[in-house]
Design a protein around this nucleic acid. Structure first.
Lengths: 170, 170
DNA sequence: AAAGATTGTTGTTGACGACAACAATTGATG
DNA sequence: CATCAATTGTTGTCGTCAACAACAATCTTT
C-alpha cells in the first residue's frame, strides 16, 4: 500500500460521535453525515448549486458544444455589436487575457469575428457572424430548456426570487 | 503590434447599436452595457455571486490562510470525527483524489490527523488535532464575519431566503 | 482461495481566475 | 511637435479546481 505514515494506534472505532443522523451503529455506508456549522453558510450552498447548474447547462447544450462562458460572451456581443474586447471582458467580469482564447475558439468556429475598429487601431469591434447569429438562436432555445430544469429543481417562484436577489451581480 | 488578421475595413464606428443604456454617443468608457438575454439566466447570476462570495471569504480569512474548501473539510470532520476520506469526499461533493491534497496541507499544519482505522486497514479515521480544534473556533468566528458581509451585500432576509432556497444542495 | 469491489494515492487533462510582461497604439503633457 | 503615461490585445506562467484513469493494498463475497 502506498499510504504514508501508518502508525499503529489502538483507537476504538467508535467514530462519528457527534452528529450522525438516522444511522444504526456499525453502518459505515455514509450518505447522511451531519454538517452542522456548514449549514447556514451561503458560500457552501452557492458552490454546490453552481456546480449543479453548470453541469446541467453543459449537459443540456452538449449537442452544440457550448459552455456557459462561451454562451455569455456570444450573448453580450449579440446584444451590443461592435464592442471591444476590453468592454466585453469588463462587462462579464472575465479577464481580457482569458477572453482572447474564448474568442479564438468562437472565431475558429465562425461564430464571432474580430473586425478592426475604425476609430482605434488597437481594438477590435466584435460581431457575430451570420452563422453565429443563427447558432445563438439555437443556443438560446437550449439555454431556456436548461433554465426550465433549474425551475424544476428549486421551484419556479424560488428561481425568480433568486434572480431578484442576485440581480445586483449581473 | 502582435495582433492577428488585421484587414482594412472602413466600417463606421457606430458600434453598440442595440442596448447601450444611459450613455452619450462617442463615450466608450463602457461600464453600462446591456446584457439583455443574459439577465434571467440563473447560472450567470450565481457564477458572479459565487466569485464575490469566495473572494470575500478568502479575504476575510486571509489572516489565518484558510480557503472555503479547507474550512468545509475541517467543519465536517469536527462535526463527525472518525470519518473516512471517502465519506468526507462524498458528503462535500469533492473527489477523493482532491481531498488527498487538502488533507495533506491540513495535516502539515497540524490541524487534522489521519488515524488508521481500527476496523479497515485501507481507510483513515479523520480527526481534528487539539490545535485544529482551537484553530477552527477562530475560523468560525471569521466565517461568521464573512457571513455578515454577505448579509450586508444582499440583505439579511434575502440571505436567509437564499439559504432556504438552496437548502437542498447542502 | 479466487474474483470483484472499495480506499487512498498518484498522475493527467482541461477550464478558469490572477498576474506579469510586451508591442502597438492612443491620449495627455510639456 | 516631442515625450511619456495609459490603454488594448496578446502571450505566458502560476495556482485552484473538477474530472478521469490508473494502481497497490485491503476488504468482501462466493
Amino acid at each position: 500500500m502506498l499510504m504514508a505514515s501508518r502508525q499503529k494506534i489502538s483507537r476504538k472505532a467508535t467514530g462519528t460521535t457527534a452528529t450522525i443522523r438516522r444511522r444504526g451503529p456499525g453502518s459505515d455506508a455514509g450518505d447522511d453525515i451531519g454538517l452542522d456549522a456548514l449549514v447556514g453558510h451561503a458560500g457552501y450552498a452557492v458552490r454546490r448549486f453552481q456546480l449543479w447548474i453548470f453541469h446541467d447547462f453543459i449537459k443540456t447544450l452538449a449537442a452544440v458544444d457550448i459552455r456557459p462562458t462561451q454562451y455569455s460572451v456570444m450573448t453580450v456581443i449579440a446584444a451590443n455589436p461592435g464592442l471591444s474586447q476590453m468592454a466585453v471582458a469588463k462587462r462579464l467580469g472575465i479577464e481580457r487575457a482569458r477572453l482572447v482564447h474564448l474568442l479564438d475558439s468562437l472565431e475558429a468556429r465562425d461564430f464571432v469575428s474580430r473586425i478592426p475598429s475604425a476609430t482605434d487601431r488597437r481594438s477590435h469591434a466584435l460581431h457575430l457572424t451570420g452563422r453565429g447569429k443563427t447558432a445563438l438562436a439555437r443556443f438560446k432555445r437550449l439555454a431556456a430548456e436548461h433554465e426550465r430544469h433549474v425551475a424544476e429543481k428549486i421551484g419556479k417562484e424560488n428561481r425568480e426570487h433568486l434572480l431578484r436577489i442576485l440581480a445586483g451581480f449581473t
